[in-house]
Write a protein that binds this DNA or RNA. Structure first.
Lengths: 213, 213
DNA sequence: GTCTATAGCTGGATAGAC
DNA sequence: GTCTATCCAGCTATAGAC
């Protein structure tokens, strides 16, 4: 037996998605990039869809474990944003966010795959949520921000920008830079005096009233 | 002749993408939903890829034209955000953002389609950019925000959230709500006094210095 | 412009030898 | 566990009748 066949197939799947998108995935193409016989896909996994599921899970678990400690080191919003940017650059280079984006698109009309992708995203957002919660605890933003929702927005935005990057790399870079600049706005709130805090608190309550009558 | 065959095919394409994602698109499936003979795809368009291109362009032009006047009516950030939310709800219901997201994913490794999708996104961001520019003119945020980049970030985030919605509708809704809440933060800046404005200006310069040494 | 028919290919999946 | 060979469905695209 060749004990690494499963792994080769999983890696081959991710590589295939990276290179040609979800549309390029087939039992034959994946087997070719993996350097493995095509029939083995159906022996080790039962179908191409289940291979995709497994690849999705593996990629997520590995990556999240890798970044968990870095997240834990961030103790301020500024630091978190720095880590986030760094992480994003690394994922971009490795092409993992793009893979998740492609799987997300491919999940349409494939309930099993959709569930796996949803689980992967949940793993990511849980991580983001934990850091946001810890880091925002001291900030006046804690009252304003719905942390669980914010974590999901962050994850979804990254995915969108990664897809955008596929058709317009310069545009995607500009989008990232703009978000980076905008983060200054959040920093300011942490440093502002009590006057501004009270103003924010008032506006927050007002906004909540008008939205939920 | 049936003069609406082209249109039926274009509509059928979009409907097929909406229902089953980009992976469900084939000459046969589109022809079936359009109620048109399969061979006509290759008569009117030259290939399935070019049909997708044309459908992408049509959907974008129609929609952008539809919303241009609504954008023009917004004269404050708050109003713009309201319009944006409304627009997004409508697009979500019609499924057009999801279509764009699917095309974006399908564009990987298809240069011609990628160009068409990039053009569609450019049309959208140009519109967003124009409104942002006008609306932010009076705000102190004009100094901080890189409007072209911000417009691209907004478009990409919508796309990401739309894909997310496909596998986890509740999560996507939470993300949208969080962004909505966060928009209050921007409003505050417009209403704040000169003290806060000076603080923001100082922080902005500082951030710019550290980023571009 | 529209239809039928079909060539030619690639896809998922399985049977069975090793 | 791995490989060859193969079945059959579905795909793009074209030829040619109408």
């Amino acid at each position: 037996m060749k004990p690494d066949t499963k792994r080769r197939l999983l890696d081959g799947t991710l590589e295939t998605v990276r290179r040609g998108g979800i549309a390029a995935v087939s039992a034959r193409s994946v087997a070719a990039t993996a350097g493995v016989n095509q029939a083995l896909i159906f022996y080790h996994f039962r179908s191409v869809e289940e291979l995709l599921e497994a690849a999705c899970r593996q990629a997520t678990e590995e990556r999240v474990a890798l970044y968990r400690e870095r997240f834990a080191l961030a103790s301020s919003l500024a630091q978190l944003l720095a880590v986030g940017r760094e992480l994003h650059e690394a994922e971009r280079a490795a092409g993992n966010v793009a893979v998740l984006a492609q799987l997300l698109a491919g999940a349409a009309g494939q309930p099993r795959l959709a569930a796996a992708v949803a689980e992967s995203l949940a793993t990511w957002t849980a991580e983001i949520e934990a850091v946001l919660d810890r880091v925002l605890g001291a900030s006046p933003l804690a009252d304003l921000a719905d942390v669980p929702g914010l974590a999901r927005a962050v994850a979804a935005s990254f995915v969108g920008i990664e897809l955008y990057d596929g058709v317009d790399p310069q545009g995607a870079a500009a989008a990232l830079d703009a978000l980076d600049q905008l983060s200054v706005l959040i920093d300011v709130f942490d440093d502002l005096g009590p006057v501004a805090r009270r103003a924010l608190a008032a506006r927050t309550r007002k906004a909540r009233r008008t939205r939920v009558p």
